[in-house]
Amino acid sequence: MRGLACLLLVAYHVRGGDPGSGLQLPTDNPWSAVVDAADYLRMPLFSFLSGWVYATRPLSSGSWSFVRVKARRLLVPLLVVGTLFGVVQLLVGAGDGLPPWYAWHLVPLAHFWFLESIFWVAVTVALLDRWGVLRRPQVLVGLVLVALVVGPSVAVPHNLLGLQTATFLLPFYLAGVGALRFEVRSTGPRFRVLLVAVTVVLVGRAAAGLLGELPRLPSQSSAVASLLGVCLCLCLVLTKVTVRPLVVLGAFSFTVYTCHVFGTAASRMLLDAAGVQSVSLQMVAGIVAGLTVGVGAELVARRHAWTGALVLGRRWPRRPAASPQA
């Protein structure tokens, strides 16, 4: 599931978030149709998996220690890799869409909004867990539904500190916690039939919007679209399909997320300079380049304690103990 989320994310940024970015494809291009269809799964899946991972080691004590670890794991790479991204954008003349440099990370940069937003979500859910709020499945399901309904109505100017997009990620994170904690894989056939039925209806509604038959579902500002994301994540959890290359790729999901844009942009510029016009070739090359750079960034960062700390959010290197004097 992590590998699938990485693949969908990289494809999105190769195509571009809108017709004016990335490959600048029109909305009626087949590649755009594929990327747009994944809107309802891509970022929900990243958040869902973050909640699933949290549920494997939930907060039981030491709230401040949890906050410090999350800040190290998410915010340090945000400041290092995110700032590098902003600098590179300015150097290549692509910084028009960025906030002023002095507001970087107060106003999230590009896809790095996720690191800020998931930090707030993780801390909020951990505190709810510490207070015993998430011990009953009925309560957790109720919180997911409330988050689905209330989230789209929250407005934070300029998405300050990623707080607005945090409300978008919250229901998926909670669903991931509940899916593991209350063993969704052990549920009976009634639940599974109901889940599949609701998912099919919502997929049909989303498809009708993408085809222009009905008004299109907003990907991040609709309770219906977010409910579809929750259902798709749960359906994936219930499947027993294993795709080995995606399993391998998923192990590098963090650096694929943070660093893939360096590869996708480089691929696009090189192919443009070479006069390559094939959209399919540019899409495939961009996806391969983005995934390769993401995996390579982690392999390189692992080689030294300081790069591991700055790029991967690992523990800070400890100073060697002073040798006792004779």
Rank of each mutant, 00 (worst) to 15 (best):
L4R: 06
A5H: 01
A11C: 14
V14S: 01
G16E: 06
G17E: 11
S21E: 12
G22T: 07
T27C: 00
N29M: 01
N29L: 00
P30M: 06
A33K: 14
D36W: 02
Y40K: 04
L41M: 07
W52R: 02
P58I: 02
S61K: 10
S63I: 15
V67T: 10
V69L: 10
P77R: 05
L79R: 08
F85K: 10
G86V: 07
G86M: 03
Q89L: 11
G93E: 09
L109S: 04
W113D: 12
W131H: 14
V133A: 15
L134N: 05
Q138H: 12
V141Q: 14
G142R: 09
V150W: 14
P152W: 04
S153E: 14
S153C: 01
V154W: 07
V156M: 05
L160N: 13
L161S: 12
L163F: 07
L169C: 11
A179K: 04
R181D: 09
R181Q: 12
F182D: 05
V184R: 13
S186P: 09
T187H: 12
P189K: 09
V196W: 08
A207V: 13
L210G: 08
L211P: 07
E213S: 13
L217H: 06
P218N: 11
C233E: 05
C235S: 14
T258L: 07
F262D: 12
F262V: 09
T264L: 00
L271D: 08
D272F: 04
Q282Y: 02
M283I: 09
I287L: 07
E298A: 00
R303N: 08
W306Y: 08
R314E: 12
R315A: 15
W316M: 13
P320S: 08
A322D: 10
S323Q: 15
S323G: 13
